[in-house]
Simulated assay, not measured.
Amino acid sequence: MRVIEIEGGAGPADGLRLAERPDPVAGPGEIRIRVRAAGVNRPDLLQRIGSYPPPPGASDILGLEVAGEVDQIGDGTTRWKLGDRVCALLAGGGYAGQAVVDARHALPVPDALDFVQAAALPETVFTVFANVFEAGGLQPGETLLLHGATSGIGVTAIQMAGALGALVIATSRTAAKAAAALDLGADVSLNAAKGDLAQGIASAGGADVILDMVGAAYAELNLNALRAGGRWVVIGTQSGNLAQVDLLRLMLKQAVLTGSTLRRRSADEKARLAAEIERVVWPWVASGKLRPPIDATFPLEQAALAHLRLEAGDHVGKIVLTI
């Protein structure tokens, strides 16, 4: 099968190269997917430069989400049949013609979606559900504050929060991105390059849940934005890992500061999340309430261009490889 490898270990985007490897084989409890599309995500960029290695036992090939058809079924797998259209969360191996995955981590592709749209869902939906809905405990009528609103995770979080019945305050760094966030369903959309974010968030009433992909630079902003009993969930540190937080103020607000990663969770935990997502979120996908926009697609051999597009930060929605 064709795959994308990182030439020389950790390199720049132009170090990604097309190669061939033996077809993988589905083991007990696994399925093999004939990959038609693979999502491109920020963790892929980090792995490429050596900052986010795959967990033990995972493929060294980039790619955390795919969509395609089941073309091989391992022993003990009963749900899926050959030819089923599925999308799946992977620990690695998505930038390839075929991918093997725990059968419990796959979800059916709704009839209304093509493979590109389906490949844009697993990594972002799992991330938002685990962090906003579970760790953050977002409830209908509450307010979610979302930084990086037009990222893949951002556009998904806006739509999922809206489908739940929550309000969304979105922050972006350009006027065009702020407008796009409004079009996607944000109730308040703030341009970080124009005006005072803190004042804008305060005018909107603050937040019950904050999904933070920025990190250190927004620590004070986030603490100020939290309502009493608020939950601040960190899933990225693009501006730095180390931040000063006034713990007394956190205590007085009776707030929660937490964080997580998805990739290193156990197979059983990912299976539990998949079942909950199919129960709660998949009806929104089927009804059209959740349809993450596709910013760009690239053929597999142009994976380096896809990485450059993501790194530039000008995208709105997901970037997907087609295979």
Rank of each mutant, 00 (worst) to 15 (best):
R263F: 02
L300M: 10
T261L: 11
A306W: 07
A306Q: 08
W284H: 13
P299D: 15
L305Q: 13
F298Y: 13
R272K: 09
K253N: 01
G288F: 06
K253Y: 03
K253S: 05
L262G: 00
L300E: 05
K289E: 12
R264N: 11
I277A: 14
V280L: 13
K270H: 03
E269R: 08
K289V: 04
D295G: 07
F298M: 11
S287R: 12
V281I: 11
Q302Y: 09
S266H: 01
R264Q: 09
F298I: 09
E269H: 10
S287K: 11
T258L: 11
V281E: 02
H307F: 07
G259A: 04
K270V: 00
S287N: 11
K253R: 06
A304G: 09
K253L: 11
D295W: 12
T258E: 11
M251W: 15
Q254G: 15
R272N: 06
R291Q: 14
V256G: 11
W282N: 13
F298N: 09
T258K: 11
M251A: 15
G288N: 05
R272Q: 11
L290H: 05
L252I: 11
P292H: 04
A296N: 04
G288D: 05
E276T: 06
H307P: 08
A306E: 09
T297I: 02
V256L: 15
Q302E: 14
W284Y: 09
R265N: 06
A286Q: 10
I277C: 15
K253E: 03
V256E: 13
P293K: 02
L273E: 00
T297M: 00
V281S: 02
I277Y: 14
G288M: 06
P293S: 03
D295L: 11
D295V: 10
A306V: 08
A304V: 03
G259V: 04
A286W: 06
H307N: 03
D268E: 13
V285A: 01
T261V: 12
R264C: 07
S287Y: 07
G259L: 05
K289A: 12
A271P: 02
L305G: 07
I277T: 15
P299K: 15
W282H: 14
R263I: 01
D268K: 07
S266C: 00
L300D: 01
R279L: 10
E301A: 15
P283R: 09
A274P: 08
A304I: 02
P292V: 04
I294Y: 03
A286L: 08
R263H: 00
P293I: 00
R264F: 10
S266R: 00
Q302A: 12
L252Q: 12
R279C: 08
S287F: 08
A304S: 09
I294E: 00
S260A: 14
A303Y: 02
R279F: 08
A296R: 06
E301S: 15
M251N: 14
G288A: 05
S266V: 02
E301T: 14
I277R: 13
L252K: 12
L305C: 05
A274L: 05
I294A: 03
T258V: 12
K253W: 04
K270I: 00
V256S: 14
V281L: 01
Q302L: 12
R264A: 10
V280T: 14
L257G: 10
R279M: 09
G288R: 06
R279T: 10
V256D: 14
L273H: 01
P292G: 05
A275Q: 15
K289F: 08
W284C: 11
A271E: 02
L305A: 13
F298Q: 10
A303H: 02
G288W: 04
